[in-house]
């Protein structure tokens, strides 16, 4: 039976030297041992020989992070929920990496970012108005992408939206982190959205156009 602790007790026990801390750590370990399989069985079959090792590794890393980050716990959730959140991050990053490490993604690695985007899809030189008259909406959109997105942004979008790669893995290959990559993608989306608005293109109509295909 794992004794119930409120947040203050968890913090107090984990911060006090000796036996209180040892038993709090061992209780947290038991809770993780019990809860992690419920979360991770959606990712890896519990019958998989790697499953137990994964759980053990995740618990070790989680306990370390919990101890190192105790000062950041603000008590706005239950302590165990906070610890589970940390375990989830550790576990899924490991699983994502295992799943994607051998999958190639074009154009992410390698340093110097070229600000002008080279574009493999044909684009037209006609003005937006003329092209609209020709019904050549695709050409306009492709030109807008070519003009508004850098090669790196474009490559990241391909990996994320077409390959379905996790941000975490794409970020690592780009030499950045997930948070910065999310911001980069948000900036790119906003930029495109504003450009479409300036060109008088309605996203709803564009959505219709693509859903009819």
């Amino acid at each position: 039976m794992i004794p119930k602790r409120d947040n203050a007790h968890w913090l107090n026990d984990l911060q006090s030297p000796g036996e209180a801390r040892e038993s709090a750590l061992s209780d947290l370990m038991s809770l993780l041992q019990r809860a992690l399989p419920a979360g991770l069985s959606h990712w890896l079959s519990p019958d998989n020989p790697l499953f137990e090792d994964l759980i053990a590794d995740v618990i070790q890393e989680t306990l370390m992070r919990v101890i190192n980050n105790l000062h950041t716990f603000e008590g706005r959730s239950q302590f165990t929920t906070w610890a589970y959140k940390i375990a989830v991050r550790v576990a899924l990053n490991e699983l994502r990496h295992r799943r994607w490490k051998n999958v190639s993604m074009d154009g992410l690695e390698g340093g110097d970012e070229n600000e002008t985007s080279l574009f493999e899809f044909p684009s037209t030189e006609v003005s937006p108005e003329a092209a609209v008259e020709r019904g050549d909406m695709l050409a306009i959109l492709q030109r807008i992408l070519a003009e508004e997105l850098t090669e790196k942004q474009r490559a990241a979008m391909n990996a994320l939206m077409l390959q379905g790669a996790p941000l975490e893995e794409v970020a690592q290959r780009m030499g950045t982190n997930r948070n910065a990559l999310y911001k980069l993608m948000h900036d790119a989306r906003l930029r495109l959205k504003k450009r479409l608005a300036r060109e008088g293109l309605s996203i709803e109509e564009l959505l219709d156009m693509f859903s009819n295909k």
Partner: peptide
């Protein structure tokens, strides 16, 4: 030259712009 092909990124990208 072949007829203009749809850039495969466009459909998911436009969808994500709707929620941006």
């Amino acid at each position: 030259s072949p007829p203009l092909q749809t850039d495969p990124l466009l459909p998911p990208l436009i969808r994500s712009l709707a929620d941006t």
